[in-house]
Design a protein around this nucleic acid. Structure first.
Lengths: 132, 132
DNA sequence: GTCAACCTTCCCGGGACTGGAATGCCGGGG
DNA sequence: CCCCGGCATTCCAGTCCCGGGAAGGTTGAC
């Protein structure tokens, strides 16, 4: 299977598939005589796994770990769960940050008339510090 | 005022201040004879403004726009508000994405025993696609 | 005279690609 | 036989926003 077909099957750009091969995340099963990468079903499945995992926001390194666990039939599900819970915690942290930013910025924006006059609480808030 | 003092006053690393000078975001008032950057009160205020604005998650380019509006005493507050509302919308988009990721991943994780056995719904969810 | 603490420039790396250039292979049409 | 489109290959550069560190000059205190 050529890289284009593998990429389509995995829902990834060929550039990305080539990149994954380069960093050793998902290597093609072989190279043909003409130098083309040759992907088999297993590699396509790995690519799809990575695509899904990346779409959950896991880093490439974590994808590597998860891929290893995926391949290891003697894995402990606890290891997988630990990774997932850790990522969940990071997501929660980011959400909390965004929420507080959102609240602050909403405050500032709602205080701003938004007309032709130059007076603007948003700029004041950005200049001074302290939003509350 | 030397760069170190300006940086401390603005709450930024000197590296960052130098970078902002390089990209023309906040330039020092002058250079001394010895080549040192010389910052005045106005530049320090701009640096602090940028620091705050960045901490709200605005991009450097948007900081540039806001800085220009900040300096323009004939600005219309509507222009500022438009930028803020746009950014708020982006924050909301990101929050929604994170929430859906969080929900999906929570689902997967809660279905996983997290023990020594290899059976793991998380990996299955990542492999197959479709979480619901 | 020496030392620390500052300042300068320059270059590299990172995370995860993305775009583009230059080149090679393959199958079909004129 | 040659050309063309569509695939593939490699390599280089850029993204975004700095951070780390080298190699060297300046300043002020002791």
């Amino acid at each position: 299977m050529n890289i284009g077909d593998a990429a389509r099957a995995a829902g990834l750009p060929t550039k990305t598939v080539r990149y994954y091969a380069e960093i050793g995340l998902v290597k093609p099963a072989a190279r043909r005589e003409n130098g083309y990468r040759d992907y088999g079903m297993q590699e396509v499945q790995q690519l799809r796994f990575v695509q899904r995992t990346r779409s959950f926001g896991f880093s490439i390194d974590t994808c590597r770990e998860l891929l290893a666990l995926y391949a290891d039939h003697n894995r402990a599900s606890a290891d997988v769960k630990a990774i997932a819970l850790d990522h969940l915690a990071q997501i929660e942290t980011k959400m909390a940050e965004l929420q507080s930013l959102h609240a602050e910025l909403t405050n500032l924006a709602s205080a701003c008339q938004g007309d032709k006059r130059p007076d603007c609480p948003i700029l004041k808030g950005l200049a001074v510090g302290e939003t509350a």
